[in-house]
Nucleic acid binder design. Structure first.
Lengths: 215, 215
DNA sequence: GTGCGCTTGTGAATTCGATCACGAGTTCCG
DNA sequence: CGGAACTCGTGATCGAATTCACAAGCGCAC
């Protein structure tokens, strides 16, 4: 019962397993194996088995896993039954795209509000999402039961936005700005930095084309 | 000269260091220490020193690092001098935001073209980016010297898109679709999955609020 | 020039994650 | 019922990344 500690690396893979399992279920597969799951999730079979073992999940030796039961187990581990309302801060290109993104609501992360400094936007709604001014943030968070803040502001406003979110009681932040925001230790920040991702790809490209030696 | 192997984890941090260093330079700091850099980059000082040591970089004991020199070293390691043209595949909410995003060009990743299946869009330009039909992909890639493909299509089209990119000779892919695409081993894929990120945050939220025991 | 405070660079220790390899349970066939 | 084929669960091993801790180098003050 006491779900022992699940390693961070495993947690990061659970959503992928869950998607693969959902597909398998949709395909009418009643049962599956670590090999098949591994193939679908793009990892190796031993890792799948070890990851699933942390859930206390029991497959059946010689047979495999029951797809529906595994969907249930992984869902429970991830807490998919819960709904975590999200607020999007910053309605530039990216913020707008995120506010509109339908995939979030489907997975239990409805975007319930947005924040922007632009007085023209405040008071309007964007795809059904009401836009508020930053100084209303705490109020909105409380009213809507917001659990997760998304930072999609320009870099210069990111730290300030993070501070507002923290002050409003938010403890989970998804940060798309190209900065490192600092927050109290009990707040979790996941940074998604598109430029960094590209730069990592660029690094490897450069590495694979070595003839160019210096600048 | 022979830049020994730089660990993957270090490569992923170099862009962050580079940003911090650029800020420090803009602030007029001529010199800095691993402590200050660590603070700015959100990591610890020993890690900064070890990471920088892989670059063969030499700071000065008792003094610290010369900011300009370090900017130069990190830039060279990352190959920032190079320009890697990008093509965006799929012009939904996210694809459009990415195509418009100005930050990419600034960092050497200009979006030079876009692909979409929608016949209404093909032939138009979105923020100066020409939209082509998927069957022109190889042609466009060759003409524009595209180095990196971004997949921003719906999940169902992601694998197909990846196959097209690979066939067109692309070896670096940034994948925003909530899927695992399979590609030949010499192609690098970095997956950025927004739903997964949210689910990981959700997992920790659930963990920190344990009173709810079962469902 | 000597000593002190500061900061780097790096071997050593530790932690964490990935992978291997195999024992054990299950099904099915003859 | 016996054996073959299959697949899970997991201890053991391996490797990568992080962290520790300290010797060595530098600059300044006196």
């Amino acid at each position: 019962m006491a779900t022992a500690r699940i390693p961070e690396a495993t947690v990061a893979r659970l959503p992928v397993y869950l998607r693969s399992l959902t597909e398998l279920a949709a395909d009418g597969q009643a049962t599956t194996s670590s090999d098949i799951l591994a193939e679908r999730a793009g990892v190796n079979a031993a890792k799948v088995r070890k990851d699933l073992s942390y859930l206390g999940t029991h497959g059946t030796r010689g047979v495999g896993y029951d797809v529906r039961h595994l969907v249930f187990e992984v869902s429970r581990a991830l807490g998919v039954a819960n709904t975590w309302p999200v607020i999007v801060c910053g309605l530039g290109n990216l913020g707008r795209a995120l506010a509109n993104h339908t995939g979030f609501t489907e997975r239990g992360f409805p975007v319930v509000a947005a924040i922007d400094v632009d007085a023209e936007l405040v008071g309007t709604t964007i795809d059904g999402v009401a836009v508020h001014s930053p100084d209303k943030l705490a109020e909105v968070v409380a009213a809507e039961g917001v659990a997760i803040g998304v930072i999609a502001t320009p870099a210069a406003a990111a730290q300030e936005t993070a501070d507002l979110l923290v002050a409003a009681g938010i403890r989970s932040i998804l940060d798309f700005s190209p900065t490192v925001v600092s927050v109290p230790p009990d707040v979790e920040v996941r940074a998604v930095d598109l430029s960094t991702e590209l730069q990592i790809l660029g690094f490897h490209l450069q590495r694979d084309l070595p003839p160019e030696v210096n600048l």
